[in-house]
Design a protein around this nucleic acid. Sequence first.
DNA 1: AATGAATGAGGATTCATTCAT
DNA 2: GATGAATGAATCCTCATTCAT
Lengths: 196, 196, 196, 196
Amino acid sequence: MAQPLEPAERRPANHGPKVAARNRDALIVAAREIYATHGLDAPLSAIARRAGVGQGVLYRHFPDRTAVAIAVLEENVRQVEQAAAAEDAAFADVLGVLTWHLTESAAFLGLLHANGATGHTEALAHALVLSGRVESALRRLLPEGHRLSAPDGLMLAVAMVSGAVGGPTREVREHRAVAAWRLLGVEVGPVRPFEG
Amino acid sequence: MAQPLEPAERRPANHGPKVAARNRDALIVAAREIYATHGLDAPLSAIARRAGVGQGVLYRHFPDRTAVAIAVLEENVRQVEQAAAAEDAAFADVLGVLTWHLTESAAFLGLLHANGATGHTEALAHALVLSGRVESALRRLLPEGHRLSAPDGLMLAVAMVSGAVGGPTREVREHRAVAAWRLLGVEVGPVRPFEG
Amino acid sequence: MAQPLEPAERRPANHGPKVAARNRDALIVAAREIYATHGLDAPLSAIARRAGVGQGVLYRHFPDRTAVAIAVLEENVRQVEQAAAAEDAAFADVLGVLTWHLTESAAFLGLLHANGATGHTEALAHALVLSGRVESALRRLLPEGHRLSAPDGLMLAVAMVSGAVGGPTREVREHRAVAAWRLLGVEVGPVRPFEG
Amino acid sequence: MAQPLEPAERRPANHGPKVAARNRDALIVAAREIYATHGLDAPLSAIARRAGVGQGVLYRHFPDRTAVAIAVLEENVRQVEQAAAAEDAAFADVLGVLTWHLTESAAFLGLLHANGATGHTEALAHALVLSGRVESALRRLLPEGHRLSAPDGLMLAVAMVSGAVGGPTREVREHRAVAAWRLLGVEVGPVRPFEG
DNA sequence: AATGAATGAGGATTCATTCAT
DNA sequence: GATGAATGAATCCTCATTCAT
């Protein structure tokens, strides 16, 4: 029963449904940026604002805040998968792409070892799926007898590197990530986004 | 306007400075428990409540929420230092104590590689000091030519293990922590708190 | 900026005015159901969704949320009128039909004694008209010297019964309605919808 | 982690805990007034504003919106009980007091025959208790062989009268209420608040 | 004529922080 | 020194309503 008292004098353009997909993408991009600067707990309104859309749009596309984070993650994971699917993909190179995402969006995989305590089973399940997809992508390329061949070895190492990643600038974070891989005795290709 | 209806209801006794210290400790204990169950973003009121004191007391002892977290950390660090100061302290054993804290309070070191971005320089500086204290304590015991001898190697490894730690129960977290150390080729003593 | 990526996706057919009327009916039916399950404050979007139409259609047919409610009421009133217009209509039977509507859509007449205070004069006027139509329909059949013959007696009684109607299931509500009429010393026919 | 960016320049007086009870009362009074003018769905912020307190205070005293409504009801019920407990209380007089509350706060007993559908078991249970208290208070005074002696007769009648009560001014509502009781063949004493 | 995305105001709710007592 | 109520800004979230297509 809560009607706006005044009929909303001038209303910014409604560009119609065609932009829906574009908006969704804009939201994901905005979310990634906001997460980078303000962390995963950043207000959703900030994300909407940066994406240049109303808050309602955010809620239309993502039911809750974890859905946003998952969508960002999904993007990252997809890139890793694409890198792994490339013709001449080598393990070290895909690891480089993965590492790039670790450094670029500190949020990445932040969910993958979710606090555990708090529940949110739905989101957790989703995160597990994403984690599994990363693992599959990597494992296919894992050389015979590699240090990380042990079951769980792969994702444990990824979690460890993600723990090592931290710092004010991407450069610092990259440096630490590479040092971490070296400490694990694992060779990494160039740290960069896929494509290329 | 405010006539005191009842002549001095009953006012919690003021037990003087003796209790002040006790309160501070109770707050830190409470904070650790709350952090464990609800994460670092738990409301301060919950901490005060669990400590059995008013919120004002919390603010008397800690200027803001990071101060509380730092105080908890401080405790953890102190225990590591004590373990390292023990007569017959061995590197692996101290690592075990450190690891116990990593698994017990997931918050531990959560600050140490704080997002960096957002500022809070004061807290950051404090965290750096704590990090340095852990490093000194460990490095003194580091055997000649150990894998982690390289400058930064030590704390990088700790960060990595802290990244690996995650899971619903402490047992799971311990298991993962140990696996992480193994992956680093580092031997760890029993994972347990320090007992004088 | 907005290049149409796909050359005319597929656009819901425009079935012309024939469907418009069907849509209106569907909306009223949907509204009745939604009101029954979620109350008069249910979101309009829910009504449109259940009717299987876009929200725009709802607004094409009804200027605002009260218009929807009024339309539903209108339906109810029409049925009572039809019952009263039947060849062999008896007062008690029409009362039965009216009672059925009271129990079936608790919303019914919810508007008729609207809070009054808040204005919405337009809707109020409409409700008064509907109330008047019910009254006329009933009064024509009112036996000479009936308990409710007094001016206002009729609609007052209806309001009273509607106040008594409440409960989790239609059966409970019917039971209470019948009890209420009995308490008023008024005989009611079978409680059921009108069937031409 | 959401600190106010600016430390709240000037802060209205905090009059200390002593006013807590006064605030609670003010909230109930405010709620009654707001309910009267805007209905039970009025924004809680309006109630807080009218009570002259911050919204937080409202939430401190009442966990949710039904708690507020219940508190208002509780007050009404208490008055009826007091009227019934008076030395020379007569059934008709207590009915008058009850009726006064029905006309004064249209919300009264609005909850007592709650929509049923929506659940809210807690609130419903509370409402049932209140309803029971009203019934007991009245039944004790019910003359032998009264029209409303039948089990349920009493509260059914109350519900009916409450259904009849509606209108722009209290006078109108009182008039209708009295007419409703007359239609039920029940004598009512003067319609007024208790005490007197 | 229909669709359904977008807008954005409004209301709910939570908490960090202050402060009278 | 302690208490815990009050404040109110910030955030979350929902929906009525508009409008490009």
